[in-house]
């Protein structure tokens, strides 16, 4: 089951370029972006901010039983990444072997194919991470 076209389309700045938000009132940065600051709520002031794509592995796993569509990627690594600007996100870790993974290792953003909608639908691209050289 695939997402609707517009669901992906409206998230292209986020999925391609890590465009998140920050609250000018409290200074907290958000990725994935939030339109309502959870700290300041209605008095918060939200604006867009682009994240650098650099971070470190906070936790990781290697998926051996994938969901529909990801069967031929397996095994693939999934990490919770702590961006240097503060927020955390979940992303695949590519171009590495499971034994190379370690909490605290530096990672950087790469642009990859996430999933295609069958053989005739659109191809959804987005961020993944790889170990920094």
């Amino acid at each position: 089951m695939s997402e609707g076209l517009a669901i992906h389309w409206r998230l292209i700045p986020q999925r391609y370029n890590l465009v998140g938000t920050e609250c000018l009132k409290c200074g907290e940065k958000f990725f994935p972006p939030r339109q309502l600051c959870p700290n300041c709520r209605r008095v918060g002031e939200i604006r867009e901010v682009k994240f650098s794509g650099e971070g470190e592995i906070y936790s990781y796993t290697v998926i051996h039983t994938p969901p529909e569509g990801f069967e031929f990627m397996k095994p693939y690594a999934m990490g919770v990444i702590k961006l240097i600007e503060g927020p955390f996100l979940t992303a695949q870790l590519v171009d590495c072997k499971p034994e190379d993974l370690e909490i605290g290792k530096r990672v950087e953003l790469v642009f990859r194919k996430i999933i295609a909608d069958g053989s005739s639908g659109i191809i959804r691209y987005g961020y993944k991470f790889k170990l920094k050289d």
Binding site: P32, T61, I63, P66, G69, M73, M78, T90, I115, K128
Partner: peptide, 16 residues
């Protein structure tokens, strides 16, 4: 949008 889209599964969340 930010987990399932990436190929995350429930066992993997608990593994993390």
């Amino acid at each position: 949008e930010w987990e399932a889209f990436k190929g995350v599964t429930f066992p993997s969340l608990y593994a993390l």
